[in-house]
Design a protein around this nucleic acid. Structure first.
Length: 311
DNA sequence: GGCATTTGACCCCT
DNA sequence: AGGGGTCAAATGCC
């Protein structure tokens, strides 16, 4: 168990509190995992309310963390807006050119991300394309979209869409960040699930929406398509619980958490095989969320506390 | 005119 | 150093 005592000095109190909350959540998750491990054995007497209480503690911990991080972030955003408003006109396009400033930005590193394989790029949200790039060893370019509410509501959701390499008409869409806007139409998300290439795809019905969902099941260990996984990646420090997902995300989580779906509970070793693209931290978060194995948060990660690029 | 898309430039990260 | 992500001017569309 890592200690939380040796904070980097430059971390703000809020950031320290965020880390503390994460550590607490980790402890609760470990406890819960032990309970599940031992269920049916000597701790079978433990009531499910006890487990529920632990679960609530974990969720609360993540909520607190996200709240703290959000406040830190919004403070930084408002700070950068203040700075930029001082030296530029209202319309960024009309500001004195300064081509040097092009591309001046802070790359996002803290957003939750997950991948969806879909026959369509539509998902009920309004997106605006802001870029397209050819990707090395990929036949198809990758398109970059941001939420159309980015500016008026500060929604930070983005997505990347790329045609599948297998020649099918499917698109692999990576969502980064959750919608904080209220722009979501009632249109059901087309597809939810993704997995690694070693999983096979099974079509099932998506209830009212009439849009087929492709489930990826593990051929090796799960002959019956009950095991579903969302390839959820969390970049760096941010961890997300279903409770903080909004709109589309909530629906997705409900679909996944509802009857007939259960999360993979393969041994820890399998996790890295199934989710090869996850970063260290994201794997940990995945394991944490699914209670797969005990984990240790690194405390030497850094919050990006530097000033935003002034446009 | 307003908004979306295209596309080359620029910068971050590995 | 190079790939990938983002910016923003130019352009297109309604």
């Amino acid at each position: 168990m890592a200690s939380v005592s040796a904070w980097p000095e430059r971390l703000s109190s809020k950031q320290k509190r965020a880390i503390k909350e994460l550590v607490e959540g980790q402890e609760y998750a470990n406890q819960l995992q032990i309970l599940f491990h031992n269920s049916g054995q000597e701790t079978a007497h433990l009531s499910s309310p006890e487990k529920e209480a632990l679960l609530h503690k974990i969720l609360r911990s993540f909520d607190q963390t996200l709240a703290v991080l959000s406040s830190v972030e919004s403070a930084q955003v408002s700070h950068s807006h203040t700075a930029s408003n001082q030296d530029s006109s209202a319309d960024s396009r009309k500001r004195p050119v300064s081509k040097d400033k092009r591309g001046c930005y802070k790359r996002k590193r803290t957003e939750q991300a997950w991948t969806v394989v879909s026959a369509t790029m539509e998902d009920g949200h309004a997106w605006r394309k802001y870029g397209q790039k050819g990707i090395l060893n990929s036949k198809h370019p990758r398109s970059y979209f941001r939420c159309t509410r980015k500016h008026d509501q500060g929604c930070r959701a983005t997505k990347q869409v790329q045609r599948m390499e297998d020649g099918s008409q499917m698109y692999r869409t990576t969502y980064i960040g959750t919608h904080t806007c209220t722009n979501y139409s009632s249109k059901a998300p087309p597809l939810i699930i993704t997995g690694s290439e070693c999983w096979e795809t099974v079509d099932v019905n998506n209830g009212d929406s009439g849009i087929p969902i492709k489930l990826h099941r593990d051929r090796q260990s799960d002959p019956i398509p009950t095991s579903v996984a969302v390839k959820q990646e969390t970049k760096e420090e941010t961890s997300t619980t279903p409770s903080d997902l909004t709109d589309l995300d909530s629906i997705m989580w409900e679909d996944l958490m509802g009857d007939g779906f259960e999360y993979c509970s393969e041994p820890a070793g399998m996790v890295s095989d199934v989710y090869p693209s996850c970063t260290d931290m994201s794997s940990r978060n995945f394991e944490l969320e699914f209670g797969i194995k005990p984990l240790e948060f690194e405390h030497d990660f850094e919050f990006d506390d530097s000033d935003e690029c002034v446009m």
